[in-house]
Amino acid sequence: MSAHAAELAVHEHKDYTGAKIGMWMFLFTEVLLFGGLFLLYAVYRAEYPQGFHQGGLHLDVFLGAINTIILLTSSLTMALSIAAIQRGQKGLAIFFLSFTILCGATFMVNKYFEWSKKIHHKIYPGSEALAKYVDNMVEEGKVPPQQKSGVLLFFSLYYLMTGLHGLHVLVGMIAMAFILRKLLKQPFVHHRWNPFQKQELQGCRLVLEDPNGQTIWKSETFDETVKHVDVEFQYYPAPKHVHPDDYVALENTGLYWHLVDLIWIFLFPLFYLIS
């Protein structure tokens, strides 16, 4: 019976592998969600290669490249953050996670400038100015008449796909902010002793040694002016003390973030580099 009870208790714990399986399933659905759009892109680009070429000329490769570098870096820092927490280096984990959020924010700011510049030039789906502009392109012979739709579709897909991707970046940032808050709230393990009686301190010194007996630090010798000694330890919890909830949540957020990054790796060449 006690064996059963133990087994029941185990069941009530959070299933680490289960949570990760669930996350991977969710990532599959994300891939297929974008998959529909990539399918549209593939068909329309095959149908209107020249239209897409003309559309692609209007994108800012430099800004796109910067954003690619930013996202790639953020993927690295995300992975570093997970690696840090696996080693119990909580401060480092917090630093890398904050840096990742910052990268996401920078990406979004760049995106904002990019979009608003285009919208300022009246390049957006359904804009009459854009339709007229495309008509001009046809007259100038830049685009054959039957490829005209391609330019319009290019911008439709550009806004839809980078828009949906941007939304995912935002969601990822929110998820990371939640984890960050959790990490920050989780207290540092903290001890305080006052083990010494005054008379016993005379002529002693406090020494900190590592497990091999090597002295790391030692204090001055205590004289009669020392009334009492407080010893305060502040240290980051070792891996086994990291709450598994936080850990798997961070790892799952990391998985999500890598997917967001991966989608961008496809979006960047397909929109910015085709011309």
């Binding site: 599959f28 297929l32 969600l33 998959g35 529909g36």
Partner: peptide, 9 residues
């Protein structure tokens, strides 16, 4: 999980 997202988008 593998088909529904397509109709979702």
């Amino acid at each position: 999980i593998l088909a529904t997202p397509v109709v979702g988008i």
